[in-house]
Design a protein around this nucleic acid. Structure first.
Lengths: 301, 301
DNA sequence: CTGAAAGCGCTTACAG
DNA sequence: CTGAAAGCGCTTACAG
């Protein structure tokens, strides 16, 4: 076929809307240019921020992201993993809620590169993770309060099972000990994951600790609930009560809220985990990444 | 092969982790059980809410959703459509920013069932859409203000090119006319899509219309910006100025905001568009869906 | 350099 | 009912 004929044929094919079938191509190349992204809830701004970062990094490299909501349901998490394998995705970014035994077993059998996001890789697996230094961030938060003269500082956690919450608690406890500040049991309260839970927990915490001058909320939603309770009960912030959160959600920056918080770089976490995964796929060895949380000073302390 | 032998072999295959390769299966069945979801920005709570609904409806039917952020960039929109075709997705849910000529041309050539979400199908295409009745919702909002005795009511739009914004404006104008209420040009202001834009626009609007007693903000973010300006300028809401928004974002329900608004059922919009698309894929004829916005009365009017 | 053949991992239609 | 063959739409390795 002459060069010219070739060109004419190719152009005609293009005109007729011919595009190579990527399915057939994948079957032979063993590459689907598809990456799985597991999220507990895409409507949660924390995860949609991460998803935006992941998509950004991957679409540049012509990968597509298949996302699956798990609603923190381990059955759905497993189903997603099965599907990652059956559909021959090139890799997967995982944000499991808990790293239970049978989930880890599944990962060990899974013959697909993966990166854990916001969770540390458990023993027996050697895939990298991307996470924030929750312990260090919590230390920074509590020191910030102490530097402003606070001595009676309360802590509000998300749940007793949450790794993240426990790491932040550990940071709080270690700094309190370091500065010889007393921590009674009633100063540590478990709220939940919602604004409402923070508001309710603040009522309890204040009742049992009326001499408290500051609260470290282990996430922003709780912190906002705390602010709500303080507003309702006419306790002035930060004069009578200082509050610091963790996450730096968009709403924390609202005019009425202006919550001082430890910022987690959500979009960057998504981007980095995508890049890390691409390295794995290209068989480069890469280390896990632990990002620092940064103090975002606003008006609540 | 005996029944028993068969069972033993099947079990062994399962033990060894054999799972049918869906790629090979797709090649022959012409079904990928994959649906594309185009969104301008997954980090925008409006779209992440829709995405949650889509995923919910589709994962039940064992479809997977491939999502693509377009950042309202028409090049990215087109690239996504190309990829929908090349990867042989079974269908796609589209949320284009503008329905430009060449985008429509692309859709006409696209041999994949699709549903438009938050946009009406243009002439020459006969695929269904899912949208909210912005015009009717706006009428309801303005009537609500009028019923409370307001006569001087301002309008704040998103942009002159936005179909949604213009429909809401049309509803406002028609009701104002119906009630013989005057609308001067300065009463209609274009803010933008952000809280900041609403705050700034409210400054201008108030300056040129000091006798205004109510504002209809064409979306909640603008409405919140309006509230911010009113708070800063010590104008009491709703006593001195009533405000109504459109969307019903989570943040509109915050203790400090409590914005009265026209609620758009985001999750349901996602679910319905997914179900509509599945019907198309199964070659059932279905009509477009126009959902009503509902008045969500809170504290700003 | 060009073109025909083999093969990716399945499913489906068909012969035995 | 069972088993071998053909074929989905490509790519790759090989013969001419």
């Amino acid at each position: 076929m002459s060069r010219r004929t070739r060109e004419i044929v190719l152009n005609a094919a293009d005109e007729l809307g011919y595009r190579p079938n990527n399915i057939a191509r994948s079957l032979i190349s063993n590459k689907t240019y598809t990456i799985g992204l597991m999220v507990p809830d895409i409507a949660d701004p924390f995860f949609s921020g991460i998803a935006a970062g992941v998509e950004d990094a991957l679409s540049n490299e012509d990968y597509q992201v298949v996302y699956g909501n798990t609603s923190r349901d381990s059955t759905k998490e497993k189903k997603f993993i099965e599907s990652v394998f059956a559909r021959k995705m090139d890799g997967v970014i995982l944000t499991p809620d808990k790293l239970e035994e049978d989930f880890v077993t599944l990962l060990k059998k899974l013959n697909v590169p993966f990166v854990l996001l916001r969770r540390r890789t458990p023993d027996g697996l050697d895939f990298p993770f991307v996470d924030v230094d929750h312990y260090g961030g919590a230390q920074q938060a509590v020191k910030h309060l102490i530097n402003q003269g606070h001595k009676k500082i309360g802590f509000m956690g998300m749940s007793k099972e949450s790794f993240t919450s426990n790491e932040r608690l550990r940071g709080y406890l270690d700094v309190m000990r370091e500065y010889n500040l007393e921590v009674t049991e009633s100063q540590i309260s478990i709220a939940g994951r919602t604004i409402d839970s923070g508001r309710v927990a603040m009522g309890r915490l204040y009742k049992s600790n009326p001499d408290l001058t500051a609260v470290f909320a282990s996430n922003d939603l709780i912190g906002i609930g705390v602010l709500e309770w303080l507003e309702i009960n006419k306790i002035e912030v930060p004069r009578q009560m200082a509050v610091i959160g963790f996450d730096d959600l968009e709403i924390s920056n609202l005019h009425w809220i202006q919550l001082t918080t430890m910022s987690q770089p959500r979009k960057q976490m998504g981007e980095l985990s995508a890049e890390l995964l691409l390295s794995l796929i290209n068989e480069e060895e890469k280390d896990s990444i632990i990002l620092d949380a940064k103090l975002k000073k606003r008006k609540t302390c």
